[in-house]
């Protein structure tokens, strides 16, 4: 017989034999079970709460890293300074998804000028010792090329010196400015200055977080906790707590080529995950994907009682005919 089975609608559940089923009782039991599990797990394991890093704690723990970062913010060579949108206009910095540049298209909507926002304004807002006033004046009077030559030379000297004192050189006012900023940070004043920006109430931590992220101190702490991007960090948590395990696929792509060596990795992986999410959402409409349940036959296990009863019914009919 070559007659194709009619593509009929799935039968109405009302056409099947029924059994009593108490949904409200089931829900109540489920709620009690979840409450008990939650109460027990929270009592036994609690929750993680690792102290935040402040500009004060960073500058005290790793003054060299703080100073190197501050000089890069002043000279406009830090990660944030060259980030591109949404923080600033940096040619070629924005990531692209193939030919599509969504990062550029969104524009600079959270402007950050690291030189002024992270270094010069906080220095001016704090009480200025005469040497700092003079250094700020020298900086302001110098042409941009000169300013950059100073910060570049000082950055190089700091890198060469490691944790020791940098060699003598022509750094202009940069060492005075950097040293004063370090002092302000160590006193805790810089945390307040970067956050408040002349206001009283504040809920936006964009600037201090960008400053922190530009240094290597925060990252070294994160890597020690297996939170780095190339350590499957997205699904990990501090200590031995479970993390966002549901992000396994998103973080997986960062571990393999071509993504891990791509400058556009973030955009590519975002695009890929958006596509895969769409596939999950639209699975009922995707040929092949929607047939996987039929092929895998897990459903034979789920509805084994039904299929067994059906087979018995069929046998009875055949023998009765």
């Amino acid at each position: 017989m070559s007659r194709r089975p009619r593509k009929t609608a799935v039968p109405d559940p009302a056409a099947f034999p029924t059994r009593s089923y108490d949904l409200v009782k089931e829900f109540t039991i489920a709620l009690v079970v979840v409450v008990l599990l939650t109460v027990g797990l929270a009592a036994v394991f609690s929750s993680p709460d690792v102290k935040p890093v402040t500009l004060a704690s960073w500058s005290r723990a790793d003054g060299a890293d703080f100073t190197a970062t501050a000089v890069s913010e002043l000279g406009g060579t830090s990660g944030t300074a060259g980030y591109g949108p949404p923080y600033n206009h940096t040619p070629g910095a924005a990531q692209k998804l193939g030919p599509v540049g969504l990062q550029s298209a969104a524009g600079v909507r959270i402007p950050v000028d690291t030189t002024n926002d992270f270094v010069l304004r906080p220095l001016r807002d704090a009480p200025e010792p005469p040497a700092v006033t003079a250094a700020l004046a020298t900086w302001a009077a110098a042409p941009a090329a000169r300013q950059q030559a100073w910060t570049r030379a000082y950055s190089d000297a700091l890198a060469k010196a490691g944790r020791g004192a940098p060699a003598k050189g022509d750094y202009g006012p940069v060492p005075v400015l950097a040293s004063r900023l370090l002092g302000l940070a160590r006193s805790g004043a810089l945390d307040g200055e970067l956050q408040a920006e002349g206001r009283f109430y504040q809920t936006d931590y964009t600037r201090p977080l960008l400053f922190l992220s530009d240094g290597s101190y925060l990252e070294s702490l994160a890597r020690a906790e297996h939170l780095g991007g190339d350590q499957w960090g997205m699904m990990n948590e501090t200590g031995n707590f479970p993390g966002q395990a549901w992000l396994w696929l998103y973080t997986f792509w960062y571990q393999i080529d071509p993504f891990k060596s791509s400058g556009n990795a973030d955009a590519l992986i975002w695009g890929l995950m958006a596509l895969l999410s769409l596939c999950l959402m639209l699975a009922p409409f995707i040929p092949g994907v929607r047939s996987v349940p039929r092929w895998t036959r897990v459903h034979r296990l789920i509805w084994r009682t039904y299929y067994r009863d059906q087979a018995m019914e069929r046998d009875r009919r055949v023998s009765g005919r």
Partner: peptide, 9 residues
């Protein structure tokens, strides 16, 4: 991740 596709703005 969010900035790379313009959402972060």
């Amino acid at each position: 991740g969010l900035n790379s596709v313009g959402i972060g703005a």
